[in-house]
Design a protein around this nucleic acid. Structure first.
Lengths: 245, 245
DNA sequence: TGACATGACATGTATATACATGATCGGATC
DNA sequence: GATCCGATCATGTATATACATGTCATGTCA
């Protein structure tokens, strides 16, 4: 029925498997072409193709004369930085915190339709406030497809962000995003501890995984405390030294 | 000094050149591996690599037993919809217009550095106001690398948007984008014909082409009149019927 | 006319081989 | 001790060859 995988695909799967299992970490040296030849009994061209395609896919970095290494970050960057707010806060040297405002199963028909569910079908909803050094930086109103994330409502979001939990359940397939600017409104302004006249950036996002809508989120951030950024494509080497935006 | 391009790169450049020149259009059949072998005197593996990489890059579609064809549309969609504002306005059934506020060569050192130019090197700057049915929808402050776009300052931007002009000069390689929310300030509010207290969404973008910074832009849009949206990845078929965000 | 066989063509994968280029490390030489 | 040289390893590119798989047009036979 299903024919055997091509050799080069097996080699790719082997390497990516080692990476995903954590046995190879970013920066680690991965097996050289010669290693793969001896281990799998393939020709060098086949090993070369496997590693070359992994490089093109951004999973590994190759340096002539030196070797091949696990690349630092991966697919997510292609998705316009589906940002892990906890990681972003910590990267800035601040302490990350999270306050759960609301966590429940809901069934608003409009939202159900938006998520591709049957009218009235229940989904998980989490309203969170993300803090950096105790100061609110993001308000997150997230709806999760319980068919995709059945344990969503029993997660401790002060320890694992919704992003982390959802990403652990399946590969990100697609993301739809809309950026808007808006005033926070009285309730949000109070939660975010800003004046109601401070512009906030609003990101509405819907993500697909395993061929279904995995979750939808509305993220509001005071413009003075957070901004969304991303790079798509490959910036040429000369671009690396440029001052950042 | 600069060594000759590898053969497979030459083949790729040949095919992409035919596409960009318009001699090969989406859906057209492109030269088969055998054609390339005869035309360039290379081995089949080399031709195969060239076409295979073009397929991975999304430029062509290959069908076993049939042939290779120019893919329908491409890179742009992966770049978080580097939007052609004129097209977007017309797609909404409104009349597009553009008012040129300023068009000159400038040499601000900070901006030069930001664009990867030598300190004091001149670049083209265009400040534009995009209109939909006569109403301002976007303010665009764009700086273009004159090494990339030598004719930038002689363009008639009421007829060809900076985006169109720049895209015609080389393939988009990478894009860096930052989204923020802000108040427009007195000058911008007057130009955009909005009150100074209306939040605007600000997009700062830098794009690379031909291994250099092609242009940098700051785009400001009143949130009530425009918003930025995009899809990355492949939305599953079932997702197409969902109500849009 | 319809079903089937066949050959031409195109891509998909795999191997063995070759030479080039870049990095690194050790040892020999000055 | 500093420098140069060469061996070794790793990746980069290129070729000739082979067989497999898939599509399509054509021609043959019932």
């Amino acid at each position: 029925m299903n024919q055997p995988l091509p050799h080069y695909q097996r080699l790719k799967a082997f390497v990516t498997g080692e990476i995903e299992a954590g046995r190879l970490r970013p920066g680690d040296r991965i097996p050289s072409e010669l290693d793969l030849i001896k281990r799998f009994g393939v020709s060098r061209m086949t090993a070369n193709r496997a590693l070359r395609e992994l490089e093109q896919a951004g999973a590994v970095t190759r340096v002539q004369g030196v070797g091949s290494f696990v690349a630092s970050r991966k697919t997510e960057q292609a998705m316009f930085e589906i940002n892990n707010i906890a990681e972003a806060v910590r990267a800035g040297g601040q302490a990350y915190g999270c306050r759960v405002i609301r966590l429940a199963a809901e069934a608003d028909p409009a939202m159900a339709a938006f998520m591709g569910l049957a009218p009235g079908e229940r989904y998980g909803r989490a309203v969170l406030l993300h803090l950096a050094d105790g100061v609110p930086v993001q308000h997150e109103d997230r709806c999760a497809n319980l068919a995709f994330a059945p344990d969503f409502l029993t997660q401790d979001f002060t320890r694992v962000t919704p992003y982390d939990h959802l990403m652990s359940l399946g590969p990100l397939q697609a993301a739809e995003q809309v950026f808007e600017a808006d005033l926070p409104g009285a309730d949000l302004a109070r939660l975010l501890q800003v004046t109601a006249s401070l512009p906030c950036i609003v990101l509405r996002r819907r993500t697909w995984s395993l061929n279904m809508v995995a979750s939808a989120a509305r993220i509001t951030a005071p413009s003075s405390r957070y901004r969304f950024s991303g790079v798509t494509g490959t910036v040429p080497p000369a671009g690396l030294g440029l001052p950042r935006l």
